[in-house]
Design a protein around this nucleic acid. Structure first.
Lengths: 419, 419
DNA sequence: CGCTATTTGTTCAGTGGTTGAATTAAATGA
DNA sequence: TCATTTAATTCAACCACTGAACAAATAGCG
């Protein structure tokens, strides 16, 4: 069985692109009701859903019946209510329905996780290893084993995997091929082909799960969107070995024409600055990339593993080490200049710092804000918030798994037709 | 009668945000069919529409009947077809139905135009005057007179104005207030209030036309989208006295959280460069704004009107004037650095130069492309195209009018309920 | 304890809108 | 002239939502 390829684009709207046929109405309302159930903080009743969506209670009942039959929703203890009346039956996302498999390949670890419809992380494994010397096929083989374990754990909990998403620190084209992953040393790696021999990733209990390959920073941003409260617009910057960014606009990831958006690490900060291996000069990565910070802090020979470097820097900064403080100030300034560009261009009001930047926020934020306030034209009316990411280092894996379940929630009809 | 305020956001999709009720189906299909008629290059028949949309011919007939009754579509000579068979009846956008009124206030002119459903400019006036010394209320009064003339011309041609949009060179908030228009010297100007006393802008033949106030660069980008071929994604840079940009993603204008996107003029090019009046340093406007180019070319005392300066620069460049060539090279380099940032961030493949930049393209493009190729990570796989805008100096007015008719095409149900 | 008020959820006839097949309309070509 | 072909309309069937009536389940009150 071959990998069935699925378009990267997560169609956030349930609206039919083409003809609106009769069933479209039901598709739309399935998505509407399921979306409200997912967004509610307490199990809503059918009557409450009818009131807030504007549908009739009759319609909501019919829609909910479909959702329950498709194992997307189950009944639970309702929100207690004062006064008389027949007690409501609360509706919650099913904890034993479809789930998403999230995978991540990074420079120094592999990760797999399973997220259920409600967004709970039901399984999570990280396998630490330096993957730079490992051949892509080999690395993907290890990943497939991790995925097989994850599937076993999911099934043991009564979950069926509805799909998988894989985050890679590089540029992915729309056929799933990794065109360039500089920090891994990958170039033109046909991920779907290489995974085709590993059944756990190519089939699930009922049918065929699609595998989506995407940029790691994009998926991390989705994870943040998922974990960090309501839908909004923000820029999520992950400071790993490289610097990537995910742009979330109105609760949807913005991927660009070819899915290569967010390459913030190579935005020029000083056009005549030091040369970067991308061919340009003075790119952000030269000022705020992990290597740049470490070398500016005089820690270049310290031989720190990539995953502990940020914490080490935070310790030294805490201790008042002048070189480290200076390096972080410079990095924060460079990030601030870049963010000012982004905000002037896109009019965003929130910047989330994730990955290795999270522990360094106390030192990065002040110079960032200073630059932003100076340079953003609209800063006076709408201050820009800089906050740490809600998820930790493996945000991309969680975001990947979340993207699978979010797609089901956004377009439940696709899942329901499997029954 | 007061100005009825309408949300700036042009909802590109006809999908209902809330409940999908029965009528939603028809709304969706009205939009679908009308959209195809608008996008077709030759009058399609009902049968052809059925084939390409996937709807039944019966449904298409019913939908078309509604559209014809609402004066959005008329029958025309069909596309000739070889062979036997009953001849088709071609469908085209009505030339005598609703039309859009586009208005523009800029530093040295006022403009008004009327665009019909098919996108034809049916009326166009430009009133040249330096508006910097004029009070906002007075300027808007003159604009209202221009609008009244435009309405008279539209009605004489059998058109009904369905709405109006006004482009302003500054930041507009979501109540229509101009928060800041630096080059006009406006600050916190309540445009809708000031226009409320001018009936031509507050009522039309059948009901109330909404007035939308938007950034001039945004509307110019919409005009370009409208005139420049199929829907795509591009960055439209207008070099007027300031530098503004409109971002079009997948055929839709991207406005940002508050509608203040595209402030490209204040993206830092050299963070330690000369101070800018925005409070930052080394902004793009300091290198590629009209004043910056003129002064770098040694023409600072030449007292050129803003509208003739670009052509004068082109003449001098054509003649090989070294200072001018140098100034344009510097400007092109700065624009290129900025565009590289934008492309790295958004993954766009097309940059359109409009406004005063259009005549200077031969000199601006080479340095731009050089910077883009050096600095854009994905330039090797997807070259970035730099091309001149299809519309001239008053693109914003045409784009404003076009945005009105495009909204009708995107959501015809709203118009049809007027009958 | 029983009755009423109240709210939830379901049932059912009615309706809008799409579907698919049959029918009518209008041309070409032998 | 007539068969062929394609376009457009008509009509019964069907799907999904609507609105009202009804059944279910509880709290409050005498």
């Amino acid at each position: 069985m071959t990998v069935v390829w699925q378009c990267q684009e997560v169609n956030q709207t349930a609206a039919p692109a083409g003809a609106a046929r009769q069933g479209s109405l039901r598709e739309l309302n399935l998505a509407l009701v399921l979306g409200r159930i997912a967004a509610a903080d307490r199990p809503p009743s059918r009557a409450a859903l009818a009131a807030e969506t504007g549908l009739t209670r009759a319609t909501v009942s019919a829609v909910v019946e479909d959702l329950v039959a498709g194992r997307l929703v189950t009944e639970a203890a309702p929100t207690p209510r004062a006064g008389a009346g027949r007690p409501a039956r609360g509706l919650v996302l099913a904890g034993d329905g479809p789930a998403g498999l999230g995978l991540e390949i990074n420079v120094d670890y592999l990760a797999a996780c399973v997220v259920d419809l409600a967004g709970e992380v039901r399984h999570h494994t990280v396998h630490r290893a330096d993957l730079r010397p490992v051949a892509p096929a080999d690395a993907l083989g290890r990943l497939a084993r991790l995925a097989a374990q994850a599937r076993a754990h999911a099934e043991a909990q009564g979950l069926s995997l509805a799909g998988a998403a894989l985050g890679v620190p590089g540029l992915v084209d729309d056929t799933g091929q990794v065109r360039l992953a500089p920090n891994l040393g990958w170039r033109d790696v046909p991920v779907p082909e290489l995974l085709a021999g590993h059944p756990p990733l190519t089939e699930t209990v009922d049918g065929v799960p699609a595998l989506v390959v995407d940029n790691e920073a994009n998926l991390a941003a989705l994870g943040e969107l998922h974990a960090g409260g309501g839908p909004g617009s923000f820029l999520h910057i992950s400071g790993e070995v490289g610097i990537g960014a995910g742009i979330v606009l109105d609760g949807a990831l913005f991927r660009g024409t070819r899915g290569w958006s967010g390459e913030i690490g190579h935005i020029p900060v000083r056009p005549d600055g030091p040369p970067c291996r991308c061919g340009g000069r003075g790119c952000l990565e030269r000022y705020a990339g992990q290597e740049a910070i470490l070398s500016a802090a005089g820690l270049v020979g310290a031989e720190l593993p990539a995953d502990t470097a940020p914490n080490r820097l935070a310790e030294l900064a805490e201790a008042g080490e002048p070189a480290v403080l200076h390096a972080l100030h410079e990095a924060g300034t460079a990030i601030g200049v870049t963010v000012a560009s982004v905000v002037n261009l896109l009019d965003l009001d929130t910047v989330v710092l994730g990955g290795g930047y999270a522990p360094l926020i106390p030192w990065l934020r002040p110079p960032m804000l200073a630059e932003i306030e100076r340079r953003v034209l609209t800063a006076a009316w709408s201050p820009v918030t800089v906050r740490p990411a809600a998820l930790g280092a493996t945000a991309a894996a969680v975001g990947a798994a979340g993207s699978v379940v979010r797609r089901i929630i956004a377009r439940p009809a696709g899942w329901l037709t499997r029954f």
